[in-house]
């Protein structure tokens, strides 16, 4: 997994636009596609989003990867809708899916994770009086990343053990040992956190 997530570094206007504004624009666009029911206008929206990919100078390789995911979902929905309802409605649904998913992908590609976390910390600041501490958000996310690394290793070990026992196809033989070790890992982590003063009063 790329530690930067899906972010595609760049300095285009879309990259520099504030996270809050981009998120707002995305939500407006997504709800807009539900209001529009004309294939022509939805086509215009799709074209505008495609233009966004050009403005953001997303490399073709990333565009292709994004397009493939979006098109597979859109094609599946299109075919099912065509079969169930008819061609017109299927076209509208297909374009709607392409527009919203492509726009959301563009948001993700042009926005750094730490910028989003920083925005969340600022937005969560008013919740301070209700006992939410924005700093804790960062801590939770960091701990989760570490846990992902640890659990991936554990899962690999369990998978190997499973193979050695010739039980590759058994979901239970994989999940039970994995979960038992997951719970144990959580308890160790909890003790480590407590030992470092978390939850003290």
């Amino acid at each position: 997994m790329n530690p930067l997530g899906l972010y595609q570094p760049g300095s285009s206007p879309l990259h520099r636009l504030g996270v809050g504004w981009k998120l707002l624009a995305l939500l407006v666009l997504a709800s807009g596609t539900f209001v529009l029911s004309s294939p022509v206008w939805l086509g215009v929206v799709v074209a505008a989003v495609a233009l966004g990919f050009v403005v953001a100078r997303i490399p073709l390789r990333r565009c292709w990867a994004a397009a493939r995911g979006v098109l597979v979902i859109a094609a599946f929905l299109f075919l099912v809708q065509w079969w169930l309802i008819g061609l017109d409605q299927a076209t509208v649904v297909g374009l709607r899916v392409i527009a919203t998913l492509a726009a959301a992908t563009l948001f993700t590609l042009t926005t750094r994770i730490d910028a989003i976390v920083a925005m969340l910390e600022r937005r969560l600041a008013p919740l301070r009086r209700f006992g939410v501490r924005p700093g804790d958000v960062a801590l939770l996310v960091g701990l989760m990343f570490q846990a992902v690394t640890t659990l991936t290793r554990i899962a690999g070990e369990v998978r190997e053990a499973q193979r050695a026992r010739g039980a590759e196809r058994s979901v239970v033989a994989f999940a039970v040992p994995l979960l038992v070790r997951t719970v144990r890992h959580a308890d160790e982590l909890g003790e480590a956190l407590a030992a470092r003063g978390m939850g003290d009063r």
Binding site: L140, L143, M144, A147, V148, L151, A186, G190, L193, M198
Partner: peptide
């Protein structure tokens, strides 16, 4: 406002567990 360590640990580790299920 303090977070009980054991709760935090289980919450975080199971969030990671769901992530690992997707990786496999």
């Amino acid at each position: 406002a303090t977070l009980p360590a054991a709760d935090v640990a289980r919450t975080v580790v199971f969030a990671a567990f769901i992530a690992v299920l997707g990786v496999f």
